[in-house]
Design a protein around this nucleic acid. Structure first.
Lengths: 195, 195
DNA sequence: CTTACTATGATGACCGGTCTATATTATATG
DNA sequence: CATATAATATAGACCGGTCATCATAGTAAG
């Protein structure tokens, strides 16, 4: 059977954590929105809140990862891939009323203790996403060192774009920044290719 | 006399909110770290936590604002200004053990109710910082529309760089992204100037 | 009868906020 | 100069509510 209660809790937790951060999300609200009893939570997630949030983050990270991969792979021009990636992000934010953006950033800003398992998975997420960009850039002929910096920049700009979009309740920043970043990528790729 | 208790509370709150977000910061901890009694808090900040955090954010926003202005004004080349700005950011993060970065981002990700006064000041902060970059870029001969997009991008990338630096506990991302952004700015400025 | 899951509610810690009482300082008045 | 008065600030007990956690019991299915 593999109860759907567990899955439901994960999805709801993912949304709440992105919307209000780790500390701002209460188990009571998760329970209420999941329409589940208290005991179920500790049955499915023996470690309590931490474990539940961890699962929710893992799910979100995987989702973002496949989205980025899909954007970059379905276009041989990396600049085009970056642009399409920002467009996907814009739509996702709009559809979620600007609540869903990055599954880890709210936790990064909520967790001062860098030694926790939660912090560890945040680090891994950034690396994972970076590698997708990096691979695409190298494949496009950009030299590795530059490709790495560029990947980080594309990633960072999209994180910042999410913050601004949330704040302004508009996809305008995402579109603007996406356009700039695509331009930058095509500039760098052009430089390195035409030699 | 204008007690220094008030100022002390603001500074400590600013640090705590940046480190753990709005919900993750408790009045008890602020009180304890400020070495002040409970009554003093509600004397100096009648609105309670919200008012206190608001003041702390205002102070932080102003601080960042002057830092960015200083970086951009003390260099006629905007690319150089951007680079220096990222360097200042890197040092600030390192000195604070990667706790201090942006005074508003943790609140943006913590506040689902966009109608609040807290959310309003976040919006204003982004605009304020953007205008500094925008002004410098226009002054360097970049056409207004492009300058606006570029300003947002530089801003967004630095927000993202903060997240990554915090997560990795390293200034490497800030340096890498700063280099890329400076390169991008000089590229755009070069385009528009040499006509 | 066991395994998987649901259901309920007690527990103690901590939350932000309110209250009254006291101390300190500044100003006014004689 | 001395004293009264008011404004400023400190001090901490206390409240109702919510937090995450956990113990225990019920239910359903194979």
């Amino acid at each position: 059977m593999s109860s759907n209660t567990r899955q439901k809790m994960i999805e709801i937790t993912a949304r709440l954590v992105q919307a209000k951060g780790y500390h701002g999300t209460s188990l009571n609200e998760i329970l209420q929105k999941s329409d589940a009893p208290r005991g179920s939570l500790y049955f499915h997630f023996p470690g309590g809140k931490k474990t539940l949030v961890l699962e929710a983050m893992k799910a979100g990270i995987e989702e973002v990862s496949t989205a980025v991969k899909s954007s970059m792979e379905n276009s041989d021009d990396p600049a085009e891939g970056v642009m399409s990636n920002y467009q996907v992000l814009a739509q996702a934010m709009k559809e979620s009323n600007y609540q869903m953006g990055c599954p880890v950033s709210s936790v990064v800003l909520d967790m001062p203790d860098i030694e926790s398992e939660l912090a560890e998975i945040c680090r891994e997420a950034y690396n994972l996403w970076n590698e997708v960009y990096y691979g695409a850039f190298v494949k496009a002929g950009i030299e590795p060192e530059r490709a790495l910096r560029l990947a980080k920049t594309v990633q960072a700009a999209s994180e910042g774009a999410i913050l601004m979009a949330r704040s302004e309740q508009s996809i305008q920043p995402i579109e603007d920044i996406g356009k700039e970043m695509a331009d930058m990528v095509s500039h760098v790729a052009g430089q390195k290719t035409q030699q």
